[in-house]
Design a binder for these strands. Structure first.
Lengths: 198, 198
DNA sequence: AAGAAATCATACCGAATAGTATGATTCTAG
DNA sequence: CTAGAATCATACTATTCGGTATGATTTCTT
């Protein structure tokens, strides 16, 4: 019983997967429902049985991406060695933001975000919230910073430098360069903000 | 004599101006040659007399934007007060990158840059080069930093935080917030890198 | 096995678009 | 003033795309 239910869910997933692929590669405007249907191994009518319009499919595909793309580099924050915890977190953060999937999603959202800001806002407002909370707690408890928002903001900005460079066509940094950059950013943050890393 | 030459140049400029406007607002795919022609107060055939295809027009429009959008916040670097020079430079830098025109160009390039990386690369490789050279010289001469690349990279990254936030739909910072952010970034840089601001 | 739901294959509609064609009209050069 | 150009106005072609319609076929339920 309920066999058709699971089949339905599978079809839905297949369509969403295909939609993500096609949207990420081609962008919202260029991607066609025919191509998405073909990529899902499904007829266009089937696509329309699950999603009433291209716009709705796009929105659901974005949700799908977010759910699929959740990373957990905040686990590093449990390391008792404070400096190692921060360094590992930083490297994980940078690497995640340099991954193809992250870059593609970011490109897509920035591109389409000009016309529908709510979309961009809702997308970005959900993902990082947990991580942000954990990081804030870490700064408070382990570094003794009462209001760590500024420190986190500046640190994050420094960590995102490689991603922003890659976005404008510069070559991706090597593993070694990522580590160096993480170390450097952490040092500047710690010294610059007068933090005590015991 | 040569009256027709100037008329030709004016028409060309008018078309390029219109193309920039339309491309920036609608994006490459959505923008139509009909609308661009209309915005330029010109027939589509006239557009095609000057530019052989939409793609060529897009490339020329990008060049046009770059030439039109050159800012000179590096003039602040001549201020004999070192700290004031850096602070004014920072504020100018942030404000420029928060302007609508900058944001729009950035969005357009990031969006279209996924498919044609050379375009993005060439666009960004020309503009900031002068500014970068002056800033490098400043760090060397006035701050005594032999290899200021890292410092400049981290500083720039911090300064770009507001722009990246605006890009993902967060509200634009006030004038006061921009100044505070510039001050904070400068302090963290100076202290963090152990620079001597005399 | 039989009826119902989902899916397929295919064709179609209306709108939009890049690019071309043509003939009339305006502007410039000599 | 006149010849040649640039431009205009308009229409056309071929294609693409979002979305719908239809009738056949497969898949699940009972």
């Amino acid at each position: 019983m309920g066999k058709i239910e699971t089949r339905k869910k599978l079809k839905r997933r297949a369509i969403l997967d295909a939609a993500c692929d096609v949207f990420l590669v081609e962008g919202y405007v260029t991607a066609s429902m025919d191509r998405i249907a073909a990529a899902a191994g499904v007829t266009k009518q089937t696509v329309y049985r699950y999603f009433s319009s291209k716009e709705e499919l796009f929105g659901e595909a974005l949700k799908h991406m977010r759910e699929a793309g959740e990373e957990e580099f905040e686990t590093h924050l449990t390391n008792p060695d404070t400096r190692a915890a921060l360094l590992d977190y930083a490297v994980g953060f940078i690497r995640a933001h340099l991954s193809d999937s992250h870059l593609e999603v970011y490109r897509l959202l920035i591109a389409e975000g000009g016309k529908s800001p709510e979309l961009t806002r809702t997308f970005f407002s959900v993902g990082p919230e947990d991580t942000d909370r954990e990081l804030t707690a870490f700064f408070r408890q382990r570094l003794g910073v009462d209001h760590p928002e500024t420190a986190i903001r500046l640190w994050t900005a420094m960590l995102l430098a490689p991603r922003n460079e890659v976005l404008i066509g510069l070559p991706a940094p090597s593993v070694r360069q990522v580590e160096d950059h993480a170390r450097m950013s952490l040092d500047v943050l710690v010294t610059g903000m007068g933090l005590e890393v015991r």
